[in-house]
Amino acid sequence: MRYLTILLFLLTFAIGCKKDDIKTFDGRDGISFYSRFSSDPDSTNYSFALQPTFKTKDTIFIKMRLVGKPSGVERGIKLKAMAGSTARPNVDYILPEVKLPANAVFVNYPLIVFNTPEMLNQSFKLVLGVDPGSELISGAAGIAVDQSKNFAQMKVNITNQLIEPDYWQNISFFFGDFSVVRFKFMVKVTGLTNFDPNVIGFSEMFLIQVNLKKALSDYVQANGPLIDEFGNQITF
């Protein structure tokens, strides 16, 4: 009888709970920076010195995605420089206001950067965040089930010096750890300034590696070992 009483109580309670009693989240939709893999850093490097032709300005496309529900209308995205930024607004960069297209989840934000004289000797950091006045607010950070990751902020390093490209970890197997001496040697031998495997393809990497080994062997015979700025001997 005691079990029957409990069962009747539970049934009565379940019937008494109306659908309207169930609480759901009803917050504003947001927008976040993101990377495809959770191990990717929340930063990117850009150098005018690594571009194939001289540029006075360029556009860096920053990946962002919706945190919330797609909408049938486009919605505005405004970014701002956050604490820790050293880049100068309207001198080193411009942050245009853009729209997330209707029914879209992803957008590439076009950060405009300028090649200023000071960049020959220093690097400027821009810490990007979503402006509180943006129609789409700052979305929640975290890791999704596909191991992609959302960031509340994105750090962009801008310079005209030779710095390690973002893609270098994908080609270090072929060419070794990054150094300015190594990179300059590669540029001199190949005539290339961009070794991104998405641009030249992995199949070409083997041929470039062979040519670099031959060129380095000739260099060593004529000049002795090629030493980088860290005191390490260059090999391929």
Rank of each mutant, 00 (worst) to 15 (best):
A83T: 14
R28A: 15
N194W: 04
T193H: 06
S32M: 02
S71N: 05
L207H: 08
Y93K: 09
E118T: 12
T159Y: 09
F25T: 15
D58T: 15
K63F: 05
F48H: 11
A83G: 05
V91R: 04
N103A: 08
Q233T: 13
S32P: 04
M82F: 00
A222I: 12
R65N: 11
Q147F: 12
F124G: 06
F37A: 15
L120K: 15
I60V: 15
F236G: 07
M64N: 06
F124Q: 11
D20P: 00
F174G: 09
M1C: 01
I137K: 14
E204W: 03
R36C: 10
V187E: 07
V98N: 02
I112E: 11
I208H: 09
A104N: 13
D177C: 09
Q209W: 01
L66K: 14
G133R: 01
L128C: 02
D196G: 00
E164L: 07
G30R: 07
A144N: 14
A102D: 02
G176T: 11
G139F: 09
I31D: 11
A102I: 03
V107S: 00
P89L: 11
F202L: 15
S138I: 07
I200Q: 06
F183E: 00
R88Y: 08
F202H: 09
Y109F: 05
D166R: 03
V145I: 12
N160P: 02
M82T: 12
F13W: 11
E74V: 10
Q153K: 15
P52S: 07
F173M: 04
L226E: 01
T56E: 14
P101N: 10
L111A: 00
G27M: 09
S148R: 06
S123P: 01
R36D: 13
M82N: 04
I15V: 10
I15D: 13
P197H: 06
Q169K: 12
L120G: 13
